[in-house]
């Protein structure tokens, strides 16, 4: 054991443990987002979409698909990852994680990996559901997957940080409810930001979610609100920021250790 440099069994054990919880709650984990996606289609796609015709050469119902997937990806990654690390803190089983021969980066890898896996799976299920309502063609499938994975990892990492920061369940709900949902709705999930008045358009550019949704939509339809390079850069930048924050948390033991 003394030669152990990467505790792969530890990472795998956490990953499997977290995925098992997902399996146990499979019904609510998958059915809820699928139903809400269907509702979005009924409301936005059928009711509004018939009056909107096209956005940037794409039928409106198809146009909102990437935004819808992103919306679920944000909220699910965030709630999965934050709950995954908050719960052991809450019930006290975190003692075992802290006393195990596992490094902080391995802990992050396992928890964030599991949370991201779940939301990627979910994103694909929503994509499948959407395909039942509108014909979807993906122009750059590899980029689509890349944006999907990166975004899931990004928000899972962000969720992990929220889970460590949260001192109670209210705080755990705070970020998804008060930060992510508004940013997503204002981030062009259901419209192109070109449709906004110029002043609001400028304001919107400070919303990081715009870049994620825009990049993801580009992978589908080849049209985007901002350049793909900028989207990718912003995504990676956000990722680096979260990584730095996690590194700081573990170095200082913030809300984990005395």
């Amino acid at each position: 054991m003394s030669g152990l440099t990467f505790n792969r069994r530890g990472v795998w054990a956490i990953y499997c443990f977290e995925m098992a919880r997902f399996k146990r709650t499979l019904l609510q984990s998958l059915v809820t987002p699928v139903i809400s996606t269907a509702l979005y289609f009924v409301v936005f796609g059928s009711a509004i979409g018939t009056r909107m015709s096209q956005v940037g050469g794409v039928p409106y119902a198809a146009f909102i698909v990437p935004g819808l997937i992103m919306l679920s990806l944000f909220t699910e990654s965030l709630s999965n990852a934050s709950f995954g690390i908050y719960f052991p803190k809450f019930v006290g089983t975190i003692y075992e994680l802290l006393s195990a021969p596992i490094s902080s980066s391995e802990i992050v890898l396992a928890y964030v990996g599991a949370a991201a896996s779940k939301s990627i799976l979910l994103g694909l299920v929503i994509l499948g559901t959407a395909a039942l309502f509108v014909p979807i063609h993906i122009l750059h499938p590899l980029w689509m997957i890349a944006f999907l994975v990166l975004t899931a990892a990004n928000f899972s990492l962000f969720g992990f940080i929220t889970g460590i920061w949260a001192k109670n369940f209210d705080q755990l709900q705070f970020i998804p409810m008060l930060v992510i949902t508004p940013l997503t709705f204002l981030g062009g999930a259901f419209y192109s930001i070109d449709m906004l008045p110029p002043a609001w358009r400028t304001v919107t550019l400070f919303n990081p979610v715009v870049y994620l949704i825009s990049g993801f939509r580009w992978a589908f339809y080849g049209t985007s609100d901002v350049g793909v390079g900028i989207s990718l850069g912003m995504t990676l930048g956000f990722f680096a920021l979260c990584l730095a924050l996690v590194a700081w948390i573990f170095r200082t033991g913030y809300r984990l250790k005395n």
């Binding site: 530890g10 054990a13 443990f17 098992a20 146990r24 019930v91 994680l97």
Partner: peptide, 25 residues
Amino acid sequence: PQELATDTFETVWATVTLSRGLFGR
């Protein structure tokens, strides 16, 4: 530890298996 802290929703088998894995076994 002194405090009873358990993964309440998990089975006995799952939680003990997790512990073994966590310690790299």
